[in-house]
Design a protein around this nucleic acid. Structure first.
Ligand code: FES
Ligand code: FES
Lengths: 150, 150
DNA sequence: TTAATGTTGACAAAATTAGTAGGGTATAAT
DNA sequence: ATTATACCCTACTAATTTTGTCAACATTAA
């Protein structure tokens, strides 16, 4: 099991938008080059995100994509659910209650897995990602300085 | 995202074995009929589980499959990992450290998701499932009795 | 105008999933 | 001994999903 590239690529790309939040649109070309992701493929992903109101576009030269809301108002879950579809582990959870429920003991398991995933992705915003990323960068900087000293 | 039928079917089937723990082997035919799962397909799943030492077999008439360990010693994670492969959310987590780590802020997210999934599946045993199932059955019984009274 | 950029819809290769099919082997029951 | 039951194993395949590609078009800044 692995999250598909839709979610993985999409989240990276949206994070890139949040890095540029308040500084005008970012073109797909830049993002696709930075992360080495097919431009046309990213386009499809962003199209969905636009339809769902998470990003906006500016057409024409110097145009591009930008977040439609503040980074702190967009959760990882919003992005992943838009791109991957409902994040679920069993067909029986999201549809009508399974007819076999009474003989099947697995339902509870899958429900727990699902809840724990939701708990993570719905409580991390793009702003949180930014903070964490800043810390990682800072740590790396210190490491590099230590290397240079020795 | 959804767990594949390998994990979903497999877990159901193995749970069925734990229901019969200590009472001799259970044939694939019975399991496949009870849950309406292809017998041949289940066979492939059980074959993997046998190779990994979670179940044993008895060949010949009246034969079948049985758990190789006590239900409390087999976790949901063991079964799911055997059947689904490594439960991961990002390619960058299980292989050599990603070269793009320093520019990519998503790694932390996927790590958290993965850990929370592991936390669930590695801490629920077949014995736990059995307890929970017993409770559900008991609750249903009470409900039915109340229905009959009214 | 022209070059940069987003928009849209169709198409398609590759991989994975979800099985099927069928012959083989072991063993309990008769 | 024979037969029915059941696991064992390998190969094959249909369907679906993933992971893109392609091309024609619309908008706008410079
Ligand atoms: S078969 Fe639907 S809940 Fe288990
Ligand atoms: S690209 Fe590998 S961790 Fe993000």
């Amino acid at each position: 099991m692995i999250l598909s590239t839709k979610g993985r690529y999409g989240l990276k790309a949206v994070f890139e938008l949040s890095l540029n939040y308040g500084e005008g649109p970012v073109s797909l070309k830049k993002i696709s080059e930075k992360y080495d992701i097919s431009e046309n493929y990213l386009e499809q992903l962003f199209s969905k995100l636009k339809k769902n109101g998470y990003i906006e576009t500016v057409r024409g030269a110097q145009g591009g994509y930008l977040l439609a809301k503040e980074p702190k108002e967009i959760t990882v879950g919003m992005i992943l659910r838009t791109l991957e579809g409902e994040i679920t582990t069993s067909e029986c959870l999201n549809r009508e209650v399974c007819v076999r429920e009474s003989i099947c003991a697995t339902r509870g398991i899958f429900e727990k897995i699902e809840n724990s995933i939701s708990n993570v992705i719905d409580n991390i915003t793009l702003a949180d990602m930014y903070e964490e990323h800043k810390n990682i960068i800072a740590e790396e900087k210190i490491k590099n300085e230590q290397k240079n000293l020795s």
